[in-house]
Design a protein around this nucleic acid. Structure first.
Lengths: 221, 221
DNA sequence: CCGCCGAATCAGGGTTTCTCCGATACCCCC
DNA sequence: GGGGGTATCGGAGAAACCCTGATTCGGCGG
């Protein structure tokens, strides 16, 4: 299936959705699933290896989040189209996803037919927004812009800084983060300090709240 | 497929998962999907109409939630087995689901093979818990008891502890809190530790999120 | 009355993190 | 080739964390 058809990579931390989606998509003519991943790093790795045409990316995956993964994939592997999937309650990621280079966006409430449509659309170098999204684009746009200054501060964060911020907000200790990222504790500290300075925040609590507002972590756990 | 095979009804508000799962399950020998529903009422209605053997029920669906739908289906339509599906972050529904009459429980992170296993298991009148769940049943039970009745855990906090928790979540340093309350830094530490222990939380980020959920502090600032 | 318990207060001491400062290395761009 | 941004790490003192007690006080039951 290398000669023709659209090669798709699926990224979601819910394997049950991964399996199901794979089964569904493989029944669609001209589409083949060339891989699946459960987190951002794996997605990046597999994308490099398999070179899919399209990546279906859940925005809220653990570790490197979907937005960040989208940013990296579209930056590093030009030509690859990323379609972001989110739950309805996470629609606020829309702007971030598009800014990160996503070529399509739909919520999971949409039918899989929508997804197929999206895949075919982005393959033609067009952007696909699901009807649900498009219909509420305006109100969402306003809601998003509400934290406009904040969003811009957010975008001044570097990739690494966002990554560290997310892990902090997930409750990981400095040492844990250092081990996970194979860095010195000092490096993590430095990143944390830079994040705090850039965001004008002075406490871990503030960082956590900020991360929640930006959708980097959930309010659960 | 009325004469043999397991008749399955799928309930989830994410159509993309519905479609995918349907495609996946129909490839499994001896299983046929006889219907899908996106909310609890519809699930109940279709269950009455189609009489599936097994219902795959997302716990967090809009309207009547999955737990309530499970309760009604198992109460009204005896013999029907309900398998509850949840996201990892909703594992706390485990106890409620079982209490409501669910015969199986798995998190979406599990593979679809788990789901097939679960279906076959409950068909033999046995209870199926996914490995992820079973492995952490004990700790989760505790955590569940806590977050399930998070409010009650909250009420076990003393006045002083709530006061300290609030200040922590507002981003105050230990020293600041001590000064404001005219107490020793050590006392604040002790309170913080007690709060963490009572809430089963291990990080400042976790405390902050908890305080937000309880309305002790706002997500702003 | 007295023992028990929980709440609230605090200390000691080892570990970890924070904070401020500085440094190196890389890369991109002008 | 210099400048700026990014990423990485170190030192050292202060602060915070974590665990183990310990004391006081008030209520409650026997």
């Amino acid at each position: 299936m290398d000669g023709n058809g659209t090669r798709v990579l699926l990224v979601d931390d819910h394997r049950v959705l991964l399996d199901g989606l794979r089964a569904f998509l493989e029944r669609q003519p001209g589409i083949s699933v060339v891989g699946t991943a459960v987190d951002g790093l794996e997605a990046l790795r597999i994308a490099r290896d398999r070179m899919p045409h399209v990546v279906i990316m859940d925005v809220s995956i653990p570790g490197m989040n979907g937005i960040e993964a989208t940013r990296r994939i579209t930056a590093e592997l030009k030509g690859i189209k990323v379609i972001c999937l989110s739950m309805h309650s996470e629609k606020r990621f829309l702007a971030a996803a598009l800014e990160a280079g996503a070529a399509g966006y739909l919520v999971k409430e949409n039918s899989s037919e929508e997804l197929v449509k999206a895949i075919r659309t982005v393959r033609q170098n067009m952007t696909y927004l699901s009807p649900t999204i498009a219909g509420t684009v305006v109100e969402d746009y306003i809601a998003t812009r509400r934290s406009d200054s904040e969003a811009s501060a957010f975008s001044t964060l570097t990739t690494r800084e966002r990554e560290v911020l997310q892990l902090i907000a997930e409750g990981r200790s400095t040492k844990e983060i250092a081990q996970r990222l194979r860095l010195s504790v000092k490096t993590i500290s430095t990143h944390r300090e830079h994040v705090m300075e850039k965001l004008g925040v002075r406490s871990l609590a503030g960082l956590t709240k900020y991360a929640i507002r930006q959708g980097l972590t959930s309010i659960e756990g």
